[in-house]
Design a protein around this nucleic acid. Structure first.
Lengths: 243, 243
DNA sequence: ACTCGAAAATGGACTAGACAAATTTCGGTC
DNA sequence: GACCGAAATTTGTCTAGTCCATTTTCGAGT
């Protein structure tokens, strides 16, 4: 313990004061109710619109507010809870009462390199599928998912995928492959313009990226997939036990 | 399927162009190397400093860059991978070769209400502990953790906690309570000035919030805890299997 | 009553600049 | 050469404003 164990007292940026003011307002309102306009807040709090917008942007990013151009800014609905486990998106959705679907955005063969080659245990020039899909639950876009699989291991995969939307079902039915273990990771990043447009949010909005690296019983890598979810709308939940 | 199934073509904000330019630069550099200064980028890309800073801020939030006031902006080290499982922070750290410690920031008795009362299954006026700790691995701050437990279930807890830093060890040794199941959730939010100061980041930086609601074998709630991790530095990893 | 279109209101993107805080640089002094 | 302090450099915060895109409002015309 050093001598200078003084209480940490960070100076508060002005935009944070605006944010706290807005949080108090939000407390008193129902979801869907409008908060004051940016220009009103600028006058009321004697600040600039830039500063007000910074506070609003954080609250939007945290899922507390939603903004609609030309209309106003409104209190958001609570975040959607999304359980995740060792199953497919389709099964996860079904377990929670949603109908899962997918819109194929891209399906191509690429040359594996760098991380993809490593993850799929391929030579650096071998072919790999790159399959990008928009994941929907009850027709509401949930995530943009980019999967990579070995072409050699699953010949003709794209054709099958156009008929059966569940990748895991195709793997099981057609290729008799069932992933039995996986390593999943979660991190944050900002939405690119493309993802933002697909998911109906703004470029730069905070996202939750769920990566899954799945394996067969003998340790053969099956799939490496990264799914981008809107951080302002979803909360991932896992049930754990020591049993 | 509507007629207007046109390819989604979001217009790209100018700051995103700056961001892509910076990503190209980052690719060619080693961690620790400086990127051009804000004013250099302003001139080079014929834009305003505000726009440059927006691009830089996203890259900082994603853990690609770090900024040092008065010094410059530098390529960041890769994110730290942090496995999480049904064990205590102390055990998790040990399993990964770190020495875990904790600095007690606050330990108080509060009146349970709202969410806390619900989570701990307490009457709305019952007492609850609110324990706030800074979590360290090898003396590097990792997370700010706020735990809530029932006072009635664990009398004298704070006294014990001042001697044994591991909460789970206190629960096991003193009260003979071992949580056997838990519900964990992950979401994003922006750092408050206080958390930012404690973790050495900036107010508003994206954080990963890991919440844990743990239970005894008979379903009695033991603890409800929320841990704030720096989103730019950590990636949470879980191993899953169908076995 | 209805429709259409202009005007107003609102959020989205960007600019140019001021001042503050922290660090680095560098010249003068000992 | 070592040290100190001023100056320059760099990021941090905030302001005041412009122009655009979208939505809402509302009045004129039918």
């Amino acid at each position: 313990m050093t001598a200078a164990a003084s209480p940490i007292e960070p100076r508060e940026p002005k935009y944070y004061l605006v944010k706290r003011h807005l949080l108090e307002i939000i407390e008193t309102l129902e979801p869907g109710a409008p908060v004051p306009t940016e220009r009103e807040l600028t006058v009321e709090l004697a600040t600039s619109r830039t500063t007000v917008r910074q506070a609003l942007s954080e609250l939007v990013g945290e899922g507390r507010l939603i903004r609609r151009q030309g209309s106003g800014t409104f209190v958001a609905e609570p975040k959607i809870v999304w359980p995740f486990q060792m199953t497919s998106f389709t099964e996860q959705a079904a377990a929670n009462g949603f109908v899962a679907s997918a819109k194929l955005l891209a399906a191509e063969r690429i040359r594996a390199s760098g991380e993809i080659a490593t993850r799929l245990n391929l030579r650096s020039s071998a072919f790999a599928y790159r399959i990008e899909r928009l994941r929907l639950a009850d027709d509401v876009p949930m995530a943009v998912e980019t999967s990579h699989l070995s072409v050699a291991a699953f010949p003709g995969l794209i054709k099958h995928l156009r008929q059966i939307s569940s990748l895991y079902r195709v793997l099981a039915d057609v290729y008799d492959v069932v992933p039995v273990s996986a390593e999943e990771s979660i991190e944050t990043a900002a939405a690119s313009p493309r993802e933002a447009a697909l998911l109906g949010t703004d470029t730069g909005a905070p996202m939750l990226i769920l990566s899954r690296h799945s394996f067969e019983i003998d340790g053969t890598p099956v799939e490496w997939v990264r799914s981008w979810y809107r951080g302002d709308r979803y909360r991932f939940v896992a049930h754990l036990s020591t049993a």
